[in-house]
């Protein structure tokens, strides 16, 4: 039986009176590409941000690679590659400096892998961050998340802003890393990405998580989730 590399139990996070996530539990197995679907504001990012320690949950536990997300926060982050939905860095830094800065904090020499990734993503590393479009900033984010060859990838809406060619390259890269034993949690709005690339999936609605029997869900059923959410808002 494959081991769970991510285990979330009864995770709850509220923002005062506003709903965040309620009693979320999920397991992601090693080597999986886990699709994390849901409308805007459903709680996907809150779940991810709670996993990574940006938010302090009100209740519940998160275990990643057998480590407790609170006690072993730094150890977990050393093994995780995270790409936030908005790719922001330090405006005045050059792309190459941002990539090296991330590697330096990891105390790793990732120059070889970073070079390969930059070439495949067709990045101009001499440019300053403030000169980049959203798509190009996303590419920097991909390199920063992948250059240290982590055990787990956590991507929050990774393909928004990327052109179709880069989207394909991005998923090729994920496949290559997961073939070598990495695991990927992919939060997205794009049903076709989940259908095509994910092995398991879950959908969030109004802060609650429902596991799907199969990632190959019908588009009409998927849209109904969004319509129901719109009606309840």
């Amino acid at each position: 039986m494959m081991e769970n590399v991510i285990e979330i139990r009864n995770l709850t996070k509220s923002y005062g009176k506003a709903r965040g996530i309620i009693d979320v539990s999920l397991q992601v197995k090693k080597g999986d590409i886990f699709g994390f679907l849901g409308p805007n504001g459903a709680g996907k990012s809150t779940t991810i941000r709670s996993m990574l320690g940006f938010l302090r949950p009100n209740a519940g536990t998160v275990t990643i690679l057998g480590l407790d997300s609170r006690k072993d926060h730094e150890k977990i982050l050393a093994k995780v590659g995270y790409m936030p939905s908005e790719a922001w860095f330090y405006d005045t830094m050059r792309v190459s400096d941002v990539i090296k800065y991330a590697a330096d904090i990891r105390r790793m020499d990732c120059s070889e892998e970073a070079g390969i990734l930059c070439e495949r993503l067709k990045m101009d590393t001499r440019k300053k961050i403030k000169e980049l479009s959203l798509g190009n900033r996303k590419k920097v984010s991909i390199v920063c998340a992948m250059q240290h060859k982590p055990d787990i990838f956590i991507f929050d809406e990774p393909t928004s802003g990327l052109d179709p060619l880069m989207q394909r390259t991005f998923f090729e890269l994920i496949r290559e890393y997961t073939d070598h034993g990495a695991t990927c949690l992919l939060s997205t709005h794009v049903l076709s990405e989940v259908n095509r690339y994910c092995k398991t999936a879950a959908i969030m609605r109004e802060g609650r998580l429902t596991m799907l029997d199969s990632p190959a869900i019908d588009e009409d059923a998927f849209i109904r989730f969004y319509e129901d959410e719109e009606e309840t808002v």
């Binding site: 990574l52 730094e74 982050l77 936030p84 908005e86 922001w88 860095f89 904090i105 984010s141």
Partner: peptide, 14 residues
């Protein structure tokens, strides 16, 4: 304020 917090604090530094 400049949205770089998620980049920095997703790196292994407390």
């Amino acid at each position: 304020d400049r949205h770089s917090g998620e980049f920095l604090l997703a790196l292994p530094i407390s």
